[in-house]
């Protein structure tokens, strides 16, 4: 009886491992974000703005994870969609539409549509040309926003954005409490969506396409269609992250579209590890904390350390921190297995 039970458990354990992206890991991520964020709010109530920043960056990195980590589309211009979302949310508010939730949705939809259109430019090329096309698109949008000062405020950005209380109840306050809980809710919702997606047939198909697009195609998968949808969704999420930034900081500047932002989010994702959702979140936390620490030591030359991080990352841990953790866990499990073996 007892033996049967253990056997059953062993089988389901094997089944979990047979799915690279097990649901428990995804649900664990939701809990980790919720508990981590609430813990921060409890113990460091003065750092809510930073916490909201981290959440927004995490959301942005998650959107890139869908595009790069899952679909395998290498992008150096992801800020284009983040920035579009930020400007849409900001402009709507300035035009008098101050309701936050619909504003955020609009940011996501517009950015998503842009991403959908842009994805058709990315279908034919391989890594290198995709890199350059995304880079070019990002730069184009940045330059366009710079020149269209009548709309975007040019280098001055959008100022004096005001947002209504969320659901008519929670006004944005000076301490960033509302901003924090707002960002947390949106991020949790997005992560739940992404977990669902990652553990769905679609998520599996994307990982397969990334691993070997030719093989996936010859199994009957419409590769282009999957990529277009993934890129559109990723762009939409990036737009929501951008809209969130605009609404919570009530300011939009040109640098939401800057190349640095695209490079930064790429770093965050690679730092944490792409393709498993956890990496994007871990990367965002580590990156922002490192930024805070380093920037307080060397105010000006923080980008030097940013660069050094990228270099070291590629040389020594190209699977990111979650990759390192997984290797470690694997080794420990092996060792534990070896120790148990002689006894049985």
């Amino acid at each position: 009886m007892a033996d049967e039970r253990t056997a059953e458990i062993a089988v389901s354990g094997a089944e979990d491992r047979a799915f690279g992206l097990a649901e428990p890991a995804g649900i664990g991520l939701l809990w980790a974000i919720a508990l981590g964020a609430l813990g921060t709010a409890w113990f460091f109530p003065l750092h809510l703005a930073l916490a909201a920043d981290i959440l927004i960056l995490a959301l942005f990195a998650l959107s890139l994870d869908l595009v790069l980590g899952f679909a395998g589309i290498v992008s150096l211009g992801h800020a284009a969609f983040f920035g579009t979302g930020a400007y849409v949310a900001g402009l709507l508010a300035l035009a008098g539409w101050r309701e936050p939730l619909s504003g955020l949705l609009a940011a996501g939809v517009v950015a998503g549509l842009l991403g959908l259109v842009a994805s058709f430019l990315l279908l034919r090329g391989r890594d290198l040309s995709r890199l350059m096309v995304t880079l070019g698109l990002g730069m184009m949008l940045h330059e366009a926003a710079n020149k269209a000062a009548w709309l975007t405020g040019g280098a001055d950005g959008l100022q004096g954005i005001r947002i209504d209380p969320i659901a008519g109840l929670f006004a944005f306050d000076l301490f960033g409490r509302t901003a924090f809980f707002y960002s947390l809710s949106v991020t949790l919702l997005a992560v739940a969506l992404l977990v669902r997606l990652a553990t769905s047939p679609f998520g599996l198909a994307l990982r397969a396409i990334r691993a070997n697009a030719l093989r996936a195609r010859l199994l009957g998968i419409d590769v282009e269609r999957h990529l277009v949808i993934a890129h559109g969704l990723g762009a939409g999420l990036a737009g929501i992250a951008g809209g969130l930034l605009a609404q919570t900081t009530q300011f939009v500047s040109l640098d939401v579209l800057a190349f640095q932002r695209s490079a930064e989010v790429l770093l965050v994702l690679l730092l944490g590890g792409a393709g498993n959702l956890w990496g994007a979140v871990v990367g965002a936390v580590v990156f922002k904390l490192a930024h805070e620490t380093l920037a307080s030591i060397t105010v000006h030359y923080w980008t030097f350390w940013l660069g050094a991080m990228l270099v070291v990352l590629v040389l020594f841990a190209s699977d990111g921190m979650t990759g390192l953790a997984r290797q470690l866990a694997h080794r420990m499990r092996r060792r534990a297995g070896a120790r148990r073996a002689p006894g049985s």
Binding site: F19, S200, P201, F202, A205, A216
Partner: peptide, 22 residues
């Protein structure tokens, strides 16, 4: 297991289901 699942799904034209659970 994942690869074969994918092949089964693809053959049925059902790989494009973002909200189904594998």
């Amino acid at each position: 297991l994942e690869a074969v699942m994918l092949a089964l799904l693809a053959a049925r034209g059902r790989s494009l289901a973002p909200f189904r659970r594998l």
